[in-house]
Amino acid sequence: MSKVVVVKNAGIRPVKKLAVDQYRLLLETGLGALFDRKPASAALSTMFPGGVVGMKTNCLTRKLNSTPKSLTDAISEMLEDSGIKANNVVVWERTNRELADAGFELNASSFGRRCMGTDTNGLGYGRTFYNSGEVNSLISRILTDVIDRNINIPVLKDHSIAGLSGGLKNMYGAIHNPNKYHIPNCNPHAAHISNLEPIRKKNRLTIIDAIRVQYNSGPGFDSRYLEYFGGILLSTDPVAVDRVGLEILEHCRLMNKLPALEQVGRPVKYLKSADAIGLGMERFEEIDLQVLAVDENGAARPGELF
């Protein structure tokens, strides 16, 4: 059964973003619950026993609503605690400009944690076309050549075409021609992109940032449609974690008297397509969902999704 852990911050509510320590508390609890192992570093060392670990961010909206640096810093610390060398941790994105605009410090050197865009000199996209269903794409050399395993770290938000922007949609940032695969509603393309061989094989973990959920008018930032959810979602199943994310997104829309995505012409059908090709579990009732609330001291208790 596909397991998804949602860890909600029951501590001090941040003005905008959580600090590194606050994310660490959520991650310690979430990873421990996901892998039934504590401390989280032990769970991580099982999942990432060595090699180079990538973290694919979503930095479309500069510092406004991109993957927070404090989140990737917290994960980096924990990976290092688990035995991964700092230089073997790579935060990556489509372009260096997007990373820099989102507050990340670029570093392609052989010292310290790395942070780089696919457009870094000497990288770019590979020369091999990968195919899955209707998708034919070149893939970022960061994914194919630099890293051994990947953690997908999107931000949960609405998307004007896809409906949901979560983990599967975030992998559009790993291919060279994402503009070819948006109509209609990114279906089945979002599923097929994540099913491209290097992506499917290297994506080991999805951690969705859902502290503040933009429930409408995405993927660009729109401050009118922000809802504090205060949690992160973790799973090794890239479809199940998005399915839970969709539940949260629809709930935020409902709370704010907006119609469901399907009613506004943005049904998230690509999750069903992903399930159909065996990428993961789309049926909500069949997902092993565990919700935890963590206070400012790191004490966890069972929580409610809403």
């Binding site: 479309l60 004007s160 075409i161 021609n177 503009n179 948006h182 109509i183 008018s217 993927p219 660009g220």
Partner: peptide, 23 residues
């Protein structure tokens, strides 16, 4: 929000920070 491109018959609807099919 967003625009509809009328350059080619594809008529892409493109919202903030997104691109048309042409890229």
């Amino acid at each position: 929000g967003g625009i509809e491109c009328r350059l080619c018959p594809r008529r892409c609807v493109v919202t903030d920070l997104e691109r048309g099919y042409c890229g």
